[in-house]
């Protein structure tokens, strides 16, 4: 329980830090980019302009702490401002459209890559004298040093452009009626290649972490005891080795996740996949600061929550954590 509360406190605090970074970033930057941009926007009604000014701290009359309080209040009320590039659409509305795509794409591919990568890592450590194990480790280490977006480009080029196995980009067939069977099929069709990009690029991270953990665990005395007891190898591998080796993997989930989410965002950009990452790309190009900010907040919050969930999973997997002994 103490563990749970501590992790919950950490979650709330990191969320707060993310909010704060979000608040100070535009205010700390030299050159007042927002000011310059506002200057260019002529067809904005004055009251909207005022709220934008407030959002970016351009009201110099108001002292910073007060601005901060207003910002926190607005955020808690779900008031994130309006998009510059899709004026006068509220950024929250833009997000409402983009989020499901990202959650589906990244959620599925992250879970898949975790399962596959961890599984391969277990086997690569268990059979580490074999040629196949070294080959797998080598191949995935090589792939891991590819830039995600470039790997996406390569897959698009060969599988979509040359072999025409998959669509080149987008998330669904525009001509299909939304919700029809054909539309759903096209969603699947469009999702495979980006998902493949994220999966293959990120499997290496899980694989190498799990392999190293496994190798460390396999040198523990309790593995030797298990062998001496004459337990079936399958039991040793799963309940003695993997069960212990996975704990640091789950704990390190946050770090790996932050990378994978970063890679996933860029993958969306390459595939013009209409999720949060592609929105971010468009927002950056259009200098749509309110949209950028909410996207940053959203990504940070999702990673933090996922990390919190991982902490809770550890609690169930590790009796020591459960008792607060570790």
């Amino acid at each position: 329980m103490k563990y749970f509360l501590r992790k919950l406190g950490m979650l709330l605090f990191t969320l707060f830090v993310a909010l704060t970074i979000n608040f100070f970033l535009p205010r700390l930057m030299p050159g007042d980019p927002a000011q310059a941009l506002l200057g260019k926007m002529e067809n904005i009604p004055p009251e909207q302009l005022d709220s934008l000014r407030a959002a970016f701290g351009l009201d110099s009359q108001e002292p910073l702490p007060l601005q901060y309080v207003h910002y926190l209040g607005n955020t808690l009320r779900g008031n994130f401002g309006v998009s510059f590039s899709r004026f006068p659409m509220p950024v929250a509305e833009v997000m409402r459209i983009a989020i499901p795509w990202t959650l589906a794409l990244m959620g599925i591919s992250t879970i898949l890559s975790f399962i596959i990568g961890t599984g391969l890592g277990i086997l690569a450590a268990w059979r580490r004298e074999t040629r196949l194990a070294s080959l797998t480790v080598g191949v995935f280490s090589f792939i891991r040093s590819f830039p995600y977006f470039w790997f996406g480009l390569v897959l698009i080029y060969f599988l979509a452009f040359k072999l025409r196995l998959f669509p080149i980009g987008g998330a669904y067939a525009v001509e299909a009626t939304r919700g029809s069977a054909a539309w759903w099929l096209s969603v699947l069709d469009h999702g495979i290649l980006p998902a493949l990009t994220i999966c293959i690029s990120s499997i290496g991270a899980w694989l190498l972490t799990m392999r190293n953990n496994m190798i460390n665990v396999l040198a523990e005395d309790y593995i030797l005891v298990a062998m001496a007891k004459g337990l079936p190898l399958r039991r040793i591998r799963s309940l003695y080795a993997a069960r212990n080796a996975i704990l640091p993997s789950v704990t390190g989930f946050a770090m790996s996740l932050a990378f994978i989410v970063g890679g996933g965002l860029v993958t969306e950009m390459v595939f013009s996949y209409p999720g949060v990452g592609y929105m971010l790309y468009q927002a950056v190009n259009a200098k749509d600061y309110p949209l950028m900010q909410i996207i940053f907040l959203f990504i940070a919050a999702s990673v933090l929550v996922a990390n919190f969930i991982a902490d809770i999973v550890v609690m169930f997997l590790d009796p020591r954590v459960r008792d607060g002994a570790k």
Partner: peptide, 25 residues
């Protein structure tokens, strides 16, 4: 060896903490 160990001969290690699997009862 597998048949013999633990039925014919068994071993106790220096650190029981390390010799017991922490996640199994």
């Amino acid at each position: 060896w597998k048949q013999l160990r633990w039925t014919g001969m068994a071993m106790v290690f220096q650190s029981a903490m390390n010799a017991l699997n922490p996640v199994l009862s």
